[in-house]
């Protein structure tokens, strides 16, 4: 028996080196590199450089600036406007978080059912998401007109000063945000609902479970990942809320609808305190990051448990 050895083709050393794949990076990653570079140049780099201003008294124009250490951060603690706006921001975030996701879930369950017009309804409910928040705010200024014969008042037969009454204005803004983004939550919940296996529902039905019980014991636990994403996105969106407030009330009446974002904007561009504004922005960014991390770690552990 002749043992024949197949010739092994040994490529030249240089060729081997050139053909070696870039460790750990597949083309799908590499294609993202240009976008990441632009993101780094336009967002990351200015953000990191901007942090320096938080320790200065720069007015935003000119070259006069001196380092003031941590005094901007100390001033935040004693600033009534910042503290007041923090309260407003948290209230708004809570309201948006609960109502937007509640409405989004109901809409998702509705359009997930076998309705004839469900495709059209999905588009209708999602449509406000694609409109600019500023446009939505201007539109809702008309809806919220204090005139009792038109707008929401005319529709509901009320005489509420939706944006002019300090005790109502914050909730009016929450209302317009929910109207705009409930469709966004709906889409994420809908994706979650599509992933619930039919077999589980069938098994539960055979076991005699009713609609509510199937939702409670089958659908709801399996929606946990969608809920995690929705809660996190609405929390981040709520804490950063600016456009709608700025366009609808500019923080008023008085200071009733000031959020952290509108306060830091005013400090920079109205009061000419760019350094102080950057300090508030930095605190806000860290606060949002901390809340999001805590939230995601809790919700993820809940997903695992289920």
């Amino acid at each position: 028996m002749t043992l024949t050895t197949l010739p092994v083709e040994t490529p030249p050393a240089a060729r081997t080196r050139r053909a070696r794949p870039l460790a750990g990076l597949s083309p799908s990653w590499l294609f993202a590199v240009p976008a990441l570079l632009v993101y780094a140049a336009v967002v990351l780099y200015p953000s990191v450089v901007g942090v320096v201003y938080a320790f200065t008294d720069w007015s935003g124009v000119g070259e006069d600036m001196s380092f003031v250490g941590l005094s901007n951060f100390q001033a935040i603690l004693g600033d009534e406007q910042v503290m007041g706006s923090l309260g407003n921001t948290l209230l708004l975030t809570m309201a948006i978080l609960v109502v937007q996701n509640g409405v989004g879930l109901l809409l998702a369950l509705g359009v997930h059912a076998r309705l004839k017009s469900r495709a059209l309804l999905r588009v209708v409910f999602f449509a406000p998401v694609v409109v600019s928040p500023v446009m939505v705010a201007f539109l809702w200024k008309y809806v919220y007109t204090p005139d009792s014969s038109t707008g929401l008042n005319g529709l509901l037969g009320l005489e509420v000063d939706w944006l002019g009454d300090p005790s109502v204005a914050l909730w009016s803004i929450a209302g317009m945000v929910v109207w705009q983004y409930a469709g966004y939550s709906m889409v994420i919940f809908l994706a979650g609902l599509e992933g619930v296996p039919k077999e589980l529902h069938e098994a539960a039905m055979i076991d005699g479970a009713g609609t509510l019980q199937r939702f409670r014991y089958v659908t709801w636990p399996l929606l946990a990942p969608a809920l995690t994403i929705n809660l996190m996105l609405s929390t981040i969106g709520g804490l950063k809320l600016f456009d709608q407030v700025f366009a609808a009330t500019n923080g008023g009446p008085g200071y009733a609808t000031e959020t952290l974002s509108t306060v830091l904007y005013k400090q920079a561009f109205v009061f000419g305190k760019f350094g102080y504004s950057t300090a508030i922005a930095l605190v806000l960014a860290l606060f949002v990051a901390a809340v999001s991390l805590i939230q995601i770690s809790y919700l993820r552990s809940r997903e695992v448990a289920q």
Partner: peptide, 8 residues
């Protein structure tokens, strides 16, 4: 494309 490799 997700698994194709690209040389350096």
């Amino acid at each position: 494309l997700r698994h194709a490799k690209m040389s350096r």
